[in-house]
Computed example of a mutant assay.
Amino acid sequence: MEQSARPARPQSEAHELVAVILLSLVAVLTAWCGFEASKWGGDSSVAFSEASAARIEAADFDSQARDARGFDLAVYSQWVVAQAGGDTALAAYIEDRFSPEFAVAFDAWVADGQRETGPFKMPEYVPPGTEQAAEATARADASTKDALDFNEKGDNYSLMTVMFALVLFLAAIAQRGTSVIATRIVLGLAGTLALIGLVVLFTFPIRV
């Protein structure tokens, strides 16, 4: 006489139900982490691009300031030669051809009793492009800082993706458990990791 079919075990069914629920939940969380990692990675790339553009702009302004400084230095050198030779008329003529920025520094230098070695040492001397270069450099530094911050946030979400992948692996293993105790242990570990990951996710910023 054939043996009747073994009745379904309630514990086994419960374990399978828990595993399916855990798999479904973690699959959603994994997809969410991937989405957030992608968004933060995109923001990081944009910020790095903005930083690069700002640094190129700063380099252009620095070049402009160097050129202006070189011109002022050449004119001032002629003034020094004229003064040394006692040619006051030529010196006055050269002074009239000072750039506006250098003229301000020159007047401040003279008013200060020429204590500094030259007008270039005066704080009043700000060749064109200097301030713009500083502003562009500041923007570049800020964008770089933002890019690194965005990149770190994306890495955090990527790390959580790996953690949830481990949960998926454990939940899948639990469905092939050889004993009730082993299944419970693996499911408990998977559930604990999933709960920890969910709590950690609540501390992460969201980028939509």
Score class of each variant (00 low, 15 high):
1 M>D: 05
82 A>G: 00
165 A>R: 04
12 S>K: 13
44 S>A: 08
83 Q>R: 03
206 I>A: 05
194 A>T: 11
174 A>E: 05
185 I>L: 15
157 Y>N: 03
48 F>M: 12
29 L>V: 06
104 V>H: 06
70 G>D: 08
99 S>M: 09
78 Q>I: 06
23 L>M: 12
192 T>P: 02
2 E>M: 01
92 A>S: 12
39 K>G: 02
8 A>H: 12
134 A>K: 11
117 T>R: 15
139 R>D: 14
195 L>P: 03
160 M>G: 05
93 Y>C: 07
81 V>F: 14
53 A>R: 02
64 Q>W: 10
186 V>D: 06
129 G>E: 08
204 F>V: 02
49 S>I: 06
42 G>Q: 04
182 A>P: 00
131 E>A: 10
116 E>C: 07
10 P>Y: 09
137 T>L: 04
193 L>I: 12
24 S>Q: 11
197 G>I: 00
58 A>W: 01
136 A>K: 11
173 I>S: 11
191 G>E: 09
208 V>E: 05
5 A>G: 06
70 G>E: 04
160 M>C: 08
153 K>H: 06
165 A>G: 13
200 V>Q: 04
80 V>C: 12
11 Q>C: 11
29 L>M: 14
183 T>Q: 08
56 I>T: 10
7 P>G: 06
70 G>W: 00
192 T>H: 08
140 A>T: 07
23 L>P: 05
208 V>D: 04
103 A>T: 08
27 A>E: 05
71 F>I: 06
44 S>F: 00
103 A>G: 02
119 P>V: 11
9 R>T: 12
75 V>S: 14
126 V>S: 01
6 R>A: 14
66 R>E: 08
72 D>A: 06
157 Y>K: 02
184 R>I: 10
199 V>L: 14
166 L>K: 10
78 Q>E: 15
101 E>G: 07
204 F>R: 10
8 A>N: 06
73 L>H: 09
208 V>Q: 10
149 D>S: 14
100 P>M: 00
10 P>I: 09
